[in-house]
């Protein structure tokens, strides 16, 4: 009885794999989104409840100056020491906001008043949009999630 010599190893046809992968790469390259666009969320108060019915939360008002300087005014924050309720911060380089000084100040404020989570920004007419976003980003980094922009 002769034994048939049958090879158990066989060669995979790799050409369809390459075709499939090439098509996938072309499709994905064409549809790839290289720019990662996000959003900075701002909640505006619109009409609604009267001020007397609204629960009072500690709020930080930020008044921007012309040269990157700003005034921080905290309202309804009873736990905050009196000397921290109204502060002035100088501007940074090139008329920009000094974000490092702001971060340090916010850390101190959050230690005294952990409930401070709302910030309202009052920019000037000539304030650049980029500076407002930088400021909001810094507030978010410091744990202040509820942000608002005050109209002129």
């Amino acid at each position: 009885m002769s034994q048939s010599k049958k090879h158990l190893d066989f060669e995979l046809n790799l050409i369809p794999f390459i075709d499939l992968l090439s098509t996938c790469i072309c499709f994905l390259l064409l549809t790839a989104v290289w720019l990662n666009v996000g959003s900075m969320n701002v909640k505006q108060a619109v009409g609604g409840q009267p001020a007397s019915e609204t629960p009072k939360k500690p709020t930080l008002w930020v008044f921007l100056g012309d040269k990157g300087d700003m005034t921080l005014e905290t309202r309804d924050a009873q736990a905050l020491p009196v000397n921290m309720r109204k502060l002035k911060l100088g501007g940074g380089t090139e008329g920009k906001v000094d974000l490092q000084a702001l971060a340090a100040q916010l850390d101190l404020m959050k230690k005294s008043e952990p409930e401070l989570k709302t910030a309202l920004i009052q920019p000037r007419a000539q304030t650049a949009y980029e500076d407002i976003i930088d400021l909001m980003d810094q507030f978010k980094k410091s744990g202040m999630a509820d942000l608002g922009v005050v109209p002129l």
């Binding site: 666009v37 996000g38 959003s39 701002v42 619109v46």
Partner: peptide, 14 residues
């Protein structure tokens, strides 16, 4: 604010 749109999302680059 006048039209009742209270949530603004400012588009940014991450």
């Amino acid at each position: 604010a006048h039209a009742g749109f209270s949530d603004l999302k400012f588009a940014v680059i991450m």
